[in-house]
């Protein structure tokens, strides 16, 4: 049990810091979909190891494995002989679990509330577009395009942006937003946003949130170029970046345009297999450590 606990603790630390940092520095966008799966595996495996470590160390003195350890915890006799430090570890495990699950729930509620308010405003301030599918037009000089996910997901484009884009570029923008909506990219970001809020002191959570936010843009670009010319999308991105005052947009815009300038990477199948194998291994490692009594 002590060996299991130590291994889990090492895994938790590695997943909380060096692994996300290394992955972010690798800046791989060859296959964004599987890259995102890898981030999710890191998040889940990290959380599992962290909570598992606390439970394993708390139950180690009286249990052969975490299974018997958890069963033992239901036993009043076992509970009565627990030391103060065992109680502390168990409370930490419970609080951590509650914090992670709770923040996911509260983040979902807050997102839904914000979106409802936003949809009400959009309905009053925008007109349905005659030219573009599932798109609403906002009369505003500020150049902006975005999508509002949800049951009645829609794309919103300002007149300020429409004026500077050609017809082909407008279609490309809408195709990109439609991809976000169709594949529910908002749900992929949600857990990372929630965990970043729950554990802001764990550097992995903000690194992961940033990487995932960028990855969904590459994913939407990949989907969009299946229905519109990649060049039109790249031009739309450049034009938007040129008229957009937000300085933080420039690096992502440049990276996306550079990616669209070339055909989809040939290596993406190989990278996908590698990423998926790595994700499965990451999830299996803490699961096996927790479940396998042989490690006791």
């Amino acid at each position: 049990m002590l060996l299991t606990g130590t291994l889990l603790a090492i895994l938790a630390v590695i997943l909380a810091w060096p692994v996300p940092l290394a992955l972010a520095r690798r800046a791989a966008t060859i296959d964004p979909v599987s890259q995102l799966a890898l981030w999710q595996a890191i998040g889940l495996a990290g959380g599992l190891s962290l909570i598992g470590t606390a439970v394993v160390f708390a139950t180690a003195p009286f249990a052969e494995s975490i299974g018997t350890g958890l069963v033992g915890l239901v036993d009043a006799e076992v509970l009565s002989v627990l030391q103060w430090w065992q109680w502390t570890l168990l409370i930490v495990a419970v609080l951590l679990s509650l914090r992670l699950i709770g923040s996911l729930i509260s983040q979902s509620i807050s997102v839904a509330r914000h979106r409802r308010k936003h949809v009400a405003l959009v309905e009053l301030l925008t007109e349905p577009s005659e030219e573009l599918p599932n798109t609403r037009v906002l009369s505003s000089a500020e150049p902006v395009a975005y999508c509002l996910p949800g049951r009645s997901g829609t794309t919103v484009v300002s007149t300020g942006l429409l004026e500077v884009l050609t017809s082909g570029q407008r279609k490309a923008v809408v195709a990109h937003e439609q991809a976000h909506l169709e594949y529910h990219h908002d749900l992929l970001v949600l857990p990372f946003a929630a965990w970043n809020r729950a554990l802001p002191f764990v550097p992995a959570t903000s690194t992961a949130l940033g990487a995932v936010s960028a990855l969904i843009e590459f994913m939407a670009d990949d989907r969009a170029r299946a229905v519109v010319p990649a060049a039109a999308l790249a031009e739309a991105i450049k034009t938007n970046a040129a008229v957009d005052s937000g300085s933080h947009s420039a690096p992502l815009a440049a990276a996306r345009a550079a990616r669209l300038a070339e055909p989809l990477p040939l290596a993406r199948r190989r990278v996908r297999v590698l990423n998926l194998v790595a994700s499965a291994a990451l999830l299996l490692l803490p699961t096996l450590l927790l479940a396998w009594p042989l490690f006791a």
């Binding site: 979106r115 936003h118 975005y146 999508c147 970001v189 969904i216 933080h248």
Partner: peptide, 15 residues
Amino acid sequence: PDRQAVLARFLGAVS
């Protein structure tokens, strides 16, 4: 960035 779950901008901002 956690606003990206509410809505996704075409030219998303990054930290």
